[in-house]
């Protein structure tokens, strides 16, 4: 798969995509500071001035989080595209074609790997592919990841960043919420840990299914996490939403996540968590 070769060099696709040569500065959405693009991979796309966590390409994230050379792609069987023959202003088939220009088939990665020496399976949503929306292929990826973790008897980590359902797949996209739940319930019943790392943004059907079913929920600082999108809520209540609403820190305060973990600490926290939660697996 193409995206694996990209992992070898820690270059970022998001950076490359913006790729205009003059565009070497990125403005921090948090404080407005101009950040030098070339420095961003080194700083894990975190603003040095205010600590704002910028969106981070999924391949670089996985390369950082997993032990060096531990990562192996898990094959996810392909599914035929466009079950409804959907067309809005543009054909869904054409949208897919455009999105696939980067060599990625759909909004997910499934890998076997290790964190601090602890083996696990990771399924990660790719926000750069149609906003990480949940297609049948994404649902299939979560199912395969859960089944792989179950077969390997290792924990499953799910990294989310998603705008919610893939509307172009209609109710079949909605069904992925139940589908993924079925696979995750089986994993949990087998006594295996399920962890989630919620990144910006995690909304809609993803929040209302596998993102919120973890034994442990970790969230990135400032990540928007919710069921309904802020704009939908504002239209419903006809009020401006309070500052910080639906952000990771707000969810921590309201008991929906276990911790808010800055990027540079995620490996360490995950390693320590895994060291404990896997200790029961082999004893059964």
């Amino acid at each position: 798969m193409n995206w694996l070769t990209d992992l070898v060099k820690p270059g970022l696709k998001t950076t490359v995509k913006r790729g205009v040569s003059a565009d070497i500065w990125e403005k921090c959405p948090g404080c407005g500071e101009l950040l030098y693009e070339a420095d961003l991979p080194q700083s894990l796309y975190v603003c040095g001035a205010c600590g704002h966590h910028l969106r981070w390409g999924i391949d670089a994230r996985l390369a950082h989080l997993l032990d060096a050379k531990s990562m192996k792609a898990v094959e996810v069987p392909e599914i035929a595209d466009d079950p409804l023959g959907f067309r809005d202003r543009k054909k869904y088939k054409d949208r897919l074609k455009d999105a696939r220009k980067g060599g990625v088939r759909d909004a997910f990665r499934v890998v076997r790997g290790a964190v601090e020496g602890h083996p696990l399976v990771v399924v990660a949503l790719d926000f750069d592919f149609m906003a990480g929306s949940m297609s049948r292929a994404v649902g299939q990826a979560v199912v395969v990841a859960a089944q792989t973790a179950l077969a390997d008897k290792v924990p499953l980590l799910c990294i989310t960043a998603s705008g919610g359902a893939r509307m172009q797949e209609g109710t079949l996209s909605l069904m992925q919420m139940a589908r993924t739940t079925a696979a995750i319930v089986a994993l949990k019943e087998a006594g295996l840990p399920y962890l989630t790392l919620l990144c910006d943004p995690t909304t809609g059907g993803v929040t209302a299914s596998f993102a919120m079913q973890g034994d442990v929920h970790m969230a990135e600082p400032g990540a928007l996490i919710g069921f309904a999108g802020p704009r939908v809520i504002e239209q419903t209540i006809r009020q401006t939403l309070p500052e910080g609403f639906q952000r990771a820190e707000y969810l921590l305060e309201h008991g929906m996540v276990d911790m808010v973990v800055p990027r540079k600490e995620q490996r360490d926290v995950l390693g320590r968590l895994l060291a404990v939660v896997v200790s029961g697996i082999n004893r059964r």
Partner: peptide
């Protein structure tokens, strides 16, 4: 889709119903 529903974990509530 309201503030109070989000505050009390609408996403988590639906996820748990499925569970």
């Amino acid at each position: 889709p309201g503030v109070d529903a989000e505050e009390r974990g609408q996403g988590q509530a639906i996820a748990e119903s499925l569970d």
